[in-house]
Amino acid sequence: MKSLERALRQIRGEGRKALVPYFMAGVTPNWRDYVHAAIQGGADAVEIGLPFSDPLMDGVVIQEAGLRALNAGTTLASVCAELQQESFSVPLVAMTYYNLFHYDGLERAAGRLQQAGITGAIVPDLTLEESTHWRAVCASSDVATIFMVAPSTTSDRFVQLAAATEGFCYAAARMAVTGRAAGAGDAQRVVDSVREVSDVPTYVGIGITQPEQARESSAFSDGVIVGSALVARVLAGDSPVEIEGLIATFRDAIDG
């Protein structure tokens, strides 16, 4: 079992619901300060967005953040080099699109992530069927491959995806790209479908914009992922201290 899943299972074992915020790497020069602030505010793991020119699974907020990061010269290599200079007290997970790894070369990309202290990768356009090579490369590293499941996922695919995912299973609450709609949607049915076939930690994302929604969704899952709602605040100019405060309100809501 990779270190990410051990850590996340331990969190569940302690009776704690996980809070996983998302930040876009390179969106501002001080982007790593937001990661530290999120951890101060109560994050259990942090998703680091690696910007891609054609983010198929992202709505306008994360598209805009990605564009800013790209215009600032952010690359897979630059993000990994920056992260390597620091240490973080919670697991970091990359979220990006497959072409960045494919272009870099899978072995080299996995090596970069590992050296940067990133212990998992969410690659929404890498289907289970196409993931064989990537997973084989990661088998010799500590980088976990995290799969998403969605309301449209069929029962046979729930079995396959829940068995393949490492670290946690990302349950998309609704049929939408990031940041487009709010609310729990079909999250409970999706989480239950994973739980029927696996005991892997299962986190709800896509559409969690308010602390109250985070509380509701964490009640029937192992944790929640908050992305666009935070990134929108970063784009609007909120400081790391303000973001820490916002994360703390999510933390309080989840811990109830």
Binding site: L56, M57, Y98, P124, D125, L126, T127, L128, E129, E130, F147, M148, V149, A150, P151, S152, T153, T154, R157, L161, A172, M175
Partner: peptide, 20 residues
């Protein structure tokens, strides 16, 4: 079977679209 012509093709879409 995977939708490839030689090295090219395949399916790289979000899981939400795979059933479709």
């Amino acid at each position: 079977e995977s939708g490839r012509f030689g090295d090219f093709g395949g399916r790289f879409v979000p899981e939400a679209l795979m059933p479709a």
